[in-house]
Design a protein around this nucleic acid. Structure first.
Lengths: 291, 291
DNA sequence: TCATTTATGAAACTTAATTTCATTATTTTT
DNA sequence: AAAAATAATGAAATTAAGTTTCATAAATGA
């Protein structure tokens, strides 16, 4: 019976703390417990911060460091920071926001969360679909972005970016205004539907109307098997990210934007250099116009 | 003669220092020179140590850190330590997009870039300022978000999020419409100005007008010493991120949004549970309304 | 039970980081 | 070219962070 060594994955410092946890005194144990729970928050903390979080004195924090073999608190933090960049094992338990979390703690947690969400876009996005999407966008005669609520942000960003590339690209939050443009669509029009759940009625309805015009429907969504997922021609899936049950999903906007960014960059890149000059012009105009 | 590519190996922070070296003042330049020469020694040094080695004052060391976009000496050391452990495998050299890059390659690069940008928000954001900002927002009688171009995205997201918390929170891209609301501002109104460069004229002008009303001006910007930076009461700095010279900064939107997310979450968290119920109600209304 | 050891936090102390401020150099304006 | 404004700088003061000391309390063992 060889190994149940799942923990081998963890970096050695954290592992070492875990191993020693039982040999430590009560106070030091609490310090170790906190550190192993939120390792990535620690390098930004002071000894006082940590003492409060672990509910011990500052002296105990220092003693903890010495117990596990560090010269002092500072070298310990440094070592921990280094190790965390190596191990992508990441333990931020976002779902349990502590009552005593300070704003800065929350900032650190959100940053972790967003970072991780973006990282895992690589997991959820299918290469082939992405390349198909780029292809369609490249030759699009117009691009319509749409999203409601939180997803409207990504839609706005998309329409903004593609406009700058010279595309006829729009996003309005107004369903009816958008519906009015449908008669003018062709089979080379592209509808980019952004929706986390893939169930938003407005989006589904628009998508159906566009489908009648043979427009290409690209869905940026995280829900497999949602109506939108099934209805769309190309699915660009965002990862399912942790949510706080009270405030919903913060990070999913990031994953949507990340995909939009990649689409934008790819289209820009492929559409070649003839665009660059036009782009520069537009950019200069903007700079001048910073009146 | 092999390759001139030695710099490709370098991590972005050190590379960034090298790039900026010529734009720095004499004393800061010496600090940067020392750091790029002996980067692995620096994380264990104190500001005094480094000041002696670089033959400058301690103040200049601190100033150097701010110049390159770090919140303070400590976050700088931390970031440097992290980057040094990332062995030279990290080749996201964004500045040289290869002609042969496939869309999916570009997707991966963008993802890396965005991830890294968010991560380094921890470098640039000052804890104290962040906590001050949260405090002001908590007791704000109204919140005005403003940004133009790419930065409008974050402003929209901010107004959207804070509206959901029940705040009187607005963002319009229309300068004049916004200006018209100024007479109604009080000293507990908050103006959140989002601008990468900190030079956008519209924003500066609005900020000045709001200042007359004693409103609190929070700047989300990456440029230290920009007019906006100086004009504002609280500065929340985004990190200076790699840019592609042709398409500008993609990732900075992410860093802006990350800060907005953190502000939102903090205010939500602090404003306590009485809000939760109202929030749930609003949420349910939205779900029902997905007609 | 009483001595001894161990664990702990409060407070004192030491060290480090940051800011302020006066001085000097540099640039711009007149 | 002189005067004014601006920017750069380090010394010193201030503030923050880390460490040690010491008194106290709990646990252990004769």
């Amino acid at each position: 019976m060889h190994s149940l060594m799942e923990d081998d994955q963890l970096s050695s410092l954290i592992q070492q703390i875990k191993n020693r946890l039982n040999h430590l005194s009560e106070a030091e144990k609490r310090v170790g417990a906190y550190i192993t729970k939120y390792p990535e928050l620690v390098p930004n903390m002071t000894s006082k911060d940590l003492s409060i979080k672990a509910d011990v004195s500052e002296a105990s924090v220092v003693r903890f460091c010495k117990s596990i073999g560090a010269a002092n608190f500072k070298t310990f933090k440094l070592e921990l920071a280094k190790e965390l960049t190596l191990s992508h094992e990441d333990l931020t338990d976002f779902s349990s926001l502590q009552k005593k979390d300070s704003p800065y703690d929350l900032f650190c947690k959100v940053t972790q969360l967003n970072k991780r969400a973006i990282e895992s876009t690589q997991l959820s996005l299918e290469r082939k679909n992405f390349e198909k999407a780029v292809e369609h966008l490249l030759s699009a005669d117009r691009i319509i972005f749409f999203g409601v609520g939180g997803s409207s942000i990504a839609a706005i960003d998309g329409s903004y970016k593609f406009s700058r590339l010279g595309y006829h690209s729009v996003m309005t939050p107004d369903f009816h205004q958008l519906a009015a443009t449908i008669p003018f669509l062709t089979s080379s029009s592209v509808f980019v539907a952004v929706s986390m759940s893939g169930k938003t009625k407005d989006i589904l309805q628009l998508a159906k109307l566009m489908k009648n015009k043979n427009a290409c429907i690209i869905a940026i969504t995280n829900a497999q098997n949602s109506p939108l997922f099934k209805l769309s021609d190309i699915q660009l899936c965002t990862p399912v990210v942790e949510q706080d049950f009270r405030i919903g999903s913060i990070a999913s906007i990031m994953t949507q934007l990340n995909i939009i960014d990649a689409l934008y960059l790819s289209v820009f890149h492929l559409s070649g250099n003839q665009l660059v000059d036009q782009y520069r012009e537009a950019r200069e105009a903007v700079i001048k116009f910073r009146r």
